[in-house]
Design a protein around this nucleic acid. Sequence first.
DNA 1: TTAAATTGACCACAACTGTTGTCAGGTTAA
DNA 2: TTAACCTGACAACAGTTGTGGTCAATTTAA
Lengths: 197, 197
Amino acid sequence: MAGRSWAGTTLDDRKAARREQLVEAGLDLLGTQGSAGVSVRAVCRQAKLTERYFYESFTDREELVVAVYEHIGDQARQTLVDAVSDAAEPADRAKAAVRSFVELMVDDPRKGRVLLLAPITDPALTTRGIALLPSFAELVSGQLSHGDAAMRQMTSIGLVGALSNVFIAYLDGSLKVSRERLIEHCVRLVLGADRQP
Amino acid sequence: MAGRSWAGTTLDDRKAARREQLVEAGLDLLGTQGSAGVSVRAVCRQAKLTERYFYESFTDREELVVAVYEHIGDQARQTLVDAVSDAAEPADRAKAAVRSFVELMVDDPRKGRVLLLAPITDPALTTRGIALLPSFAELVSGQLSHGDAAMRQMTSIGLVGALSNVFIAYLDGSLKVSRERLIEHCVRLVLGADRQP
DNA sequence: TTAAATTGACCACAACTGTTGTCAGGTTAA
DNA sequence: TTAACCTGACAACAGTTGTGGTCAATTTAA
């Protein structure tokens, strides 16, 4: 029976808790060592669980990587939605969105690296095309007012690439600039993208 | 003796030829399977040579990866230099540079992927910071006329990121657009980067 | 207390990795 | 022809990988 109580909690509860531990361990490895550091054994070591529990929650190494990525993706999306919903003016919304994203990453650089780097470095994500950035770009594309579909697509892809690269440089320390200037510049990039050439 | 003739060619000649085969095989694997596909054994299989000859030309797996990357890097740089030296006007130079780069990648997408993706995906390149893009960004930075050093750095990093992302999207087929429009758009990006906000 | 469910520590397997070494043949200059 | 050199196919090493299984110990509901 799954509902039976055990050690104060139900089986399903503990199973979910273990899954969470594994995802957290995956985030840690993916966000610091990168794709190559995420092996089933390494994740289990980090989570202090045995392989048995890995296969209890995931069929594959792939599945774990995807779960980690989508977990962080959801979190980022929620952060953006919250920030945007508090602002009325378009310019304020851009600013709020950028600011909340920067804060998310500064708060926990692992998340930034997972969000920006993992989809291009990990085969589990690249091959399936499970990248959020394209969908984000598509979303941006809908907000643009000039040009035809292809034009808007190129503009939004470029914008996302510009932001990503700036964020990555900021994350790895090669771009030494205050958080405020970073935000300011990114806001300018966002606002500048939708302009007649 | 190294100068002694053997099978019609000198030893050094054949050694160089083998090295070239290995680099070519490395390009093929790095440009299609990505970083994970480049193992010593896989490279040797592809090059139809045995491991013995791998260690004849390279001490490490790392060394091979670096050699492949720098080989393509040199090629790209040479292509750019050639293209730019044929144009007088600044606008024409930007156009020529972008065009030659696009042609290089369309001609052989493996090279595009090595140039753009390998430095972020392969540990042998990431850890040593052997990326050409930053130095390219630095070069672009020097050409900008507005803002202070930090401002120019952010602008150039953003520009490189925008171009890379557009190229990558074009390479993997998610950006369906004619070569001419791609070039046109990228030229606009380059020229638009140096503008008062 | 008893029987069932849960846990954790291991082990086993085959496949792969980087790297070095060996050894039987072929090729060439002398 | 002989002796030196070059070549290719492997074997061996210790390591890690994904994925499965076993088994004794613990914890609980009955």
